[in-house]
Each structure stands twice: as structure tokens, then as C-alpha cells.
Simulated scan of single mutants.
Amino acid sequence: MASIEVGGKSIEVDEEGYLVDRSEWTSEIGAHMAELDNCELTDAHMEVINFLREYYEEYQIAPAVRVLTKAIGKKLGKDKGNSKYLYELFPYGPAKQACKYAGLPKPTGCV
């Protein structure tokens, strides 16, 4: 099993870089994972990441991109609940990439 080093602590990740134990997640770990992908997390990124974490707590599932887009639109408004906005923030796939930085499992159906 692979690991990343954050704040002097070794954190286990799977072969795709997702946290093995999601209870270990902190915003610093999310930011470090983003850095490894040459991405700097902004407040806009964190808004989506925090939304995903709340969604996961409620439904116990990481949403696929279509569900994510619709749910964000309901909660954060149409300007943020669209694929264009989400792909600008997370170009490698809003559901897949945002879930990774949020310390959540890879959404079902993501390649």
C-alpha cells in the first residue's frame, strides 16, 4: 500500500491516491493531494469539497458527476451547479478528482 507524507505523518492511500481511512482526512491532506496533481485549492474548490463531504455523510455514497452537478445546483445555485464550472475547478473529472481531495472513495462508475 502506498502512502503520502503530510505534516510529518504518513497517510495510507490506495494505488490511485485515494485515502484508505477517510477518518484521517484534514483540509491539509486534501491540499497536499491537490499539490501532487499540480492543483492549488481555492475557496471555490473547498466549497465543492465540503459539499461532497456533507453529501457523503448523509447518503454514504460518493455521487457520480451528474448527481453531483444537480445536487450542487440545488444547494449552491445554478451558476455552480453546472458541468462547465465544475470541470474548470476539477479538470480531471469533478466527481473523481474532488472526491479524492475530499478524502472520499472514488465514485461508482468513474474510470
Rank of each mutant, 00 (worst) to 15 (best):
A2K: 12
I4M: 00
I4K: 00
I4D: 06
V6C: 09
G8P: 14
K9T: 07
S10M: 13
S10K: 11
I11G: 10
V13T: 13
E15Y: 13
L19Y: 06
L19I: 08
R22Y: 13
E24R: 09
S27E: 09
I29K: 00
A31E: 07
H32L: 06
H32Y: 11
M33C: 07
A34S: 04
L36V: 02
N38E: 10
T42Y: 14
D43L: 10
A44Y: 12
H45A: 10
H45F: 14
M46H: 15
E47H: 14
V48E: 12
V48Y: 14
I49G: 13
F51A: 15
F51R: 13
L52M: 15
E57N: 10
E57W: 02
Q60K: 14
Q60D: 15
I61G: 13
A64Y: 01
A64Q: 02
V65F: 04
V65P: 00
V67L: 14
V67C: 13
L68I: 05
K70Y: 05
I72T: 02
G73H: 05
L76H: 04
G77S: 01
K80N: 04
K80I: 05
S83F: 06
S83T: 13
K84P: 00
E88K: 08
F90I: 05
K96T: 03
K96I: 01
Q97K: 02
A98M: 09
A98D: 03
Y101Q: 06
Y101L: 08
A102V: 08
A102P: 11
L104V: 05
T108F: 03
G109E: 01
C110F: 04
C110V: 06
C110S: 15
V111C: 08
V111F: 08
V111G: 11
